[in-house]
Design a protein around this nucleic acid. Sequence first.
DNA 1: GGCGCAAATGCTACTATGTTGCAAAACCAC
DNA 2: GTGGTTTTGCAACATAGTAGCATTTGCGCC
Lengths: 144, 144
Amino acid sequence: MSDHTSLSPAESLIAARGGRMTRTRVAVLDVLLAAEQSLTHDEIGAALAEQGIKHDRVTLYRTLDWLVESGVAHKMAGEDRARRFGVATSGPHEHAHFHCDRCGKVVCLEGLQPAVAVNLPGGYQLDRAELVLHGACPTCGKGT
Amino acid sequence: MSDHTSLSPAESLIAARGGRMTRTRVAVLDVLLAAEQSLTHDEIGAALAEQGIKHDRVTLYRTLDWLVESGVAHKMAGEDRARRFGVATSGPHEHAHFHCDRCGKVVCLEGLQPAVAVNLPGGYQLDRAELVLHGACPTCGKGT
DNA sequence: GGCGCAAATGCTACTATGTTGCAAAACCAC
DNA sequence: GTGGTTTTGCAACATAGTAGCATTTGCGCC
């Protein structure tokens, strides 16, 4: 709303990828950018609904897929069978994730790639490593 | 079959956990012990069917759950939304996993826990770390 | 500003994975 | 063998994600 000459962060990201500027994409990206943790498809859907943005389950899946393919967002599987999405702020998603075992939230720990020095049994070709830390997040661990 | 005084490895494991010795449990554990990689519920079911062992999808889920609870097997989520199971030969599953991006197989790399020395942003309590290596397994990477 | 077309949406229906409740059967102790 | 508890098997349900297709919409082009 307001000034049509300046683009919101979400709009810039979409424009940079040469994609169409649709209501859903901007809204989804806004939600993702505002979130501090990775969100499930369901959580994003709820956020859109709160903003009164009409959408379909399927459209959301496709929008999310497009964002991942465009390199704007990244997708990951959790312990439950729900995929979570987050914005991929920097380069490839070569960063660690923190999974809170109490509230189930997943946070991206950018720029925290540890030195993974494992020596694989012969024959294995390492492409990339994914590190998931388990424990309690600041909020959940407070009352310990 | 054969000698009832000697127990198979699978039978010993079940007996050690104080569980009942049922057809399904022994068969499932046999499959798991024979497998070099983590198997999905579906793959295990297929293996049982090949052996002519009558079973139910639900029973298999429950058997697998029991094995996990008993500490005999361990469960993990993959990129797809299917959980994979493997035998937990040693202690807690503090080991790394190798995921082949070509054939989708997941192999347990026992005794390969790397030094995960990340400094978490204040407030986070680390419980355990899970490392997943992505790349090509010996079989798939051979023809490169 | 209007036109046309490809891309995106929204619908319905479907697949896959996993769970729950309950009656029947199997396991094991006696 | 008998009894009691655990497991099994069935059917129905729940959840996450996918497929096909008609309609709408963003956007380049005139």
